[in-house]
């Protein structure tokens, strides 16, 4: 009924005692997330808010609590190392919220992940929310979500919220919503997640939200053409962005004339994807595919 997590998934928070980690842990608990442990090196033995045990290492936390998914709020300078710790411990899923990790560090993380089992979402992302099972592993405001059968995949945090908000307003609930992050090098991409939604019996259609920079949307278009039978809607941000400028996200830059919104929109349309003409029409564009 959802992808990547279910109602029994036990969640660990790395960086639980930091400012952002603590704030969002409380938000996640409010949303119903099954948080069983936290990790902050040097604070092992404490309890977060008098209830969640804090450990020094990920492997200790996993052994003691059976956590299988981790959400990372670790500062950028240490985040790559923490992701590797999560991978080494054998966690099923790592979701890295942290923004500003050096690209070279993420290249190192990807190399470290080869031949290991952990799936990575992010970094520089809002994480995952699965409304049907009340699991929020990240920072998406759960108040705008609604349980249902639409999958959401996005490179942008706030545009994910925007898409979810529009779907909910139209009465279209979501199965799982994933922000894959705005960095040049990260974890799972559109293709990986489209494949999971295709197999999920409780997802009817997917909306993917891309932006300028890189070729992930073109790869997704090629994959959709060959492999995806469920309806897909899309929106690409950055049609008005000037070339050569980094637009907030480290990965959002038109380089050498490549990575423009126009190329991505053309590739997606060519693959039969319904591309929303404006960011305000994401929900209605997807709804039009369901009739």
């Amino acid at each position: 009924m959802t992808i990547l997590v279910n109602k029994d998934t036990k969640v660990l928070i790395q960086g639980i005692t930091g400012g952002a980690g603590a704030f969002h842990t409380r938000q996640m608990l409010d949303a119903g997330t099954n948080i069983v442990a936290g990790v902050t090196p040097g604070k092992g033995g404490q309890k977060f808010d008098d209830k969640i045990p804090v450990f020094n290492t990920v492997s200790e936390a996993m052994e003691a609590t059976g956590a299988s998914a981790s959400v990372l709020f670790v500062p950028a300078a240490f985040a790559a190392d923490s992701v590797k710790e999560t991978v080494a411990a054998g966690m099923d899923l790592a979701i890295c919220i942290t923004e500003g990790i050096p690209t070279v560090d993420m290249v190192g993380v990807r190399a470290y992940m080869e031949n290991k089992n952990t799936l990575l979402i992010g970094p520089n992302c809002p994480g995952l929310i699965a409304p049907p099972v009340n699991q929020k592993l990240g920072i998406t405001p759960h108040s705008v979500t609604k349980p249902g059968k639409i999958g959401v995949i996005s490179r942008s945090g706030t545009l994910t919220y925007e898409a979810i908000g529009q779907l909910t307003a139209l009465g279209l609930g979501q199965s799982t919503c994933i922000g894959i992050g705005g960095d040049p090098v990260g974890g799972m991409d559109f293709v990986d997640l489209l494949a999971l939604f295709e197999e999920d019996p409780d997802t009817d259609a997917t909306i993917m939200i891309g932006e300028i920079g890189g070729t992930a949307e073109e790869q997704a278009a090629a994959f959709i053409r060959e492999n995806i039978k469920k309806p897909v809607a899309a929106f690409i941000a950055g049609a008005t962005a000037p070339p050569g400028k980094r637009m907030g996200h480290a990965g959002a830059i038109i380089a050498g004339g490549k990575g423009t919104a126009a190329e991505k929109i053309a590739a997606l349309k060519d693959a039969g994807v319904a591309v929303s003409p404006t960011p305000a029409a994401m929900g209605t564009t997807l709804a039009s595919l369901l009739k």
Binding site: S154, R155, S156, G157, T158, L159, T160, E162, G182, I209, E211, I212, F235, A237, G238, A239, T240, A241, M247, G248, H249, A252, A261, P277, T278, P279, A280
Partner: peptide, 15 residues
């Protein structure tokens, strides 16, 4: 707030 929404906001103003 957010790079994606900021880009999209420019896009919709132009639209």
């Amino acid at each position: 707030n957010g790079a994606g929404l900021a880009m999209a906001t420019m896009d919709i103003i132009k639209h």
